[in-house]
Design a protein around this nucleic acid. Structure first.
Lengths: 336, 336
DNA sequence: TTGTATGCGTTATCAA
DNA sequence: TTGATAACGCATACAA
């Protein structure tokens, strides 16, 4: 690999001048610039990025932390991030934490040691104190998930309100005994969604019943397993509200296997509006998160933090969601 | 941030010794080691990774290039990669090329400049010549996809044989007029699969008919659109073979919307066995790729290339696939 | 407009 | 077993 020294020798100018040419500094004579460029071409010289980064302590790269890979929910978000990032000359790298704090720590370490200029964290699996300490000194944006009572910059929808609205919609359809399948409530995100469900019920004077509230792994299998348990329990219910489309897909699968018609016998709704939700039978009633918008806002916020122009270090950006009515919630019925 | 110099001052030893302690070199007295470790703890010193990488020209990180994000097909593969990588003390970063050669080039540039130690490329969207030149001097493994007539290390299944076997299976079920919906044949991968379909037909003396062979974007929408076109064309057929589960899912959706029973009226089969394939109605007959195995083999090969111990620079690893029979292909019928 | 010289934080060579 | 010191490749303050 040719280094800047090789270019110096071949072009007969100094390192400083070569460096100026590389960075398009205006203070260099056209003739000199040409000489240097010729040498660069001839040597097929490319500046060593590792050395550049080491020297400047900036990489023009940001890291996106995902809780799991292959979740289509994130693909649209990542597109939004990429859009804003590449317009600003940034590149993004994605890493998987698997919700494992040890893994997450490794990547935060990478941030601290300037291997990248910032982190957008959809995983948020580290303790609040740790996050706040790091976010206080480094560009960090948490998105979709959040830490409760924290001032780390955050981009989300109002999960509580969305879940409440969804549950209210089901109540308005006439349902009175509504089961719930949600993700682990250790995550603030899932706590909020469960809480929205509870609020909606309480507002109607219907007590939430713990026997029809289930916690599950937030994937298809988790929804399937929870619904099967629910069915085996013998509890009566006419609808299931879930905290995720994958959970809803799994639940519907279980219901259909048990020959229960969705939505005629049991209505189901999801959360997130992932790609397959509009393609299944029945199509899924769900909450649509503005995914592209989430990605763009998160990246813009991060760029602000990186440049230091954005001094609002504890901004909580709350974006609008949308209730998407499809087939799985069914029509109004008079449930006794 | 504390540097090695701070540790030197506090512990009263030389940088060399501190460095030795950091890297668990055996040639250091226990007492000295303790002194240094105490200083490191007190200062909360962490070696600057950027400086380390710059100095050693190794990062202990590898890059995985994906053609698109949020495709659940890759999640199992990435798990396999991660397994092998972390056992060897490596971390993986994922980047999206979007099948865009410009993007891919940026990431290969990162490899050339030692920002990471190797690349596993599932995107393979760069010209063969470019790839061969880079792979000749850097650790590169192409997986799932491949470049035709290339000697870049590669991990795949035998796509041609798999597609042929799938088509043969449909022929054995009695189908004679089998439509095909496949990905863009500019990719060697999709060329192989289409070729397998053709071979199976020819072996039975059935000429492949171009009027029922469609090319589509390899996602649900693409499958849906192609199937709709196929239906509108008025061509007769009793089965559809596809080059991907997402295509099959889209095709089934289209058929069902047109009130055609799958598999009773039209049989459909996919390729890849993605997560939802076993959860849809009907469940999908498909080709299962050994995803975990692909990931592990690719990473092991890459580690071999990185360490220089693996001198087999043009190895083509072909792993076994499996024909998974589910509902969408239906039973034997006597198609005239 | 150009060049000189210094340092970024670490590893590694060599001598002690 | 330990230490002094020279790189690694580049950017930049300062001098010319």
């Amino acid at each position: 690999m040719a280094t800047i020294q090789d270019v110096v020798k071949l072009s007969g100018v100094s390192v400083a001048t070569v460096s100026r040419v590389i960075h398009n500094s205006p203070n260099v004579l056209p003739a000199t610039r040409e000489k240097v460029l010729a040498a660069i071409r001839e040597l097929d010289y490319h500046p060593n990025r590792l050395a550049q980064q080491f020297r400047t302590q900036r990489t023009k790269c940001v890291l996106v932390l995902l809780p799991r890979l292959g979740d289509s929910f994130y693909s649209e978000i990542l597109k939004g991030i990429e859009e804003v990032a590449s317009a600003a000359g940034y590149h993004i790298f994605i890493a998987n934490t698997g919700n494992n704090p040890e893994m997450a720590k490794f990547y935060y370490e990478a941030l601290i040691q300037k291997q990248n200029d910032g982190i957008i964290d959809f995983s948020a699996c580290l303790p609040r104190e740790y996050m706040e300490e790091i976010a206080g000194q480094n560009p960090v944006v948490v998105a979709c998930r959040y830490l409760s009572n924290s001032n780390v910059p955050n981009v989300t929808i109002d999960n509580l309100a969305a879940s409440r609205e969804m549950t209210e919609y089901m109540l308005n359809l006439g349902h009175r005994r509504i089961a719930y399948i949600g993700g682990n409530t250790e995550l603030a995100l899932y706590r909020s969604r469960l809480y929205g469900y509870r609020q909606a019920l309480e507002e109607r004077g219907i007590p939430a019943e713990e026997t029809i509230i289930y916690t599950a792994d937030p994937d298809i299998q988790g929804g399937y397993d929870a619904a099967m348990q629910l069915l085996r329990s013998g509890e009566k219910f006419t609808a299931i509200v879930t905290s995720g489309d994958t959970l809803a897909v799994g639940a519907i699968k279980a219901l259909q296997e048990r020959k229960l018609q969705v939505p005629e016998e049991i209505a189901v709704c999801g959360f997130d509006d992932i790609e397959i939700s509009s393609l299944l039978s029945p199509t899924l009633t769900t909450i649509r998160q503005p995914r592209g918008l989430i990605g763009r806002h998160a990246m813009e916020k991060l760029l602000g933090l990186i440049s230091g122009k954005d001094e609002n270090l504890s901004e909580q950006i709350v974006l609008p969601y949308e209730l998407v009515i499809r087939a799985s919630s069914g029509k109004f019925r008079n449930n006794k």
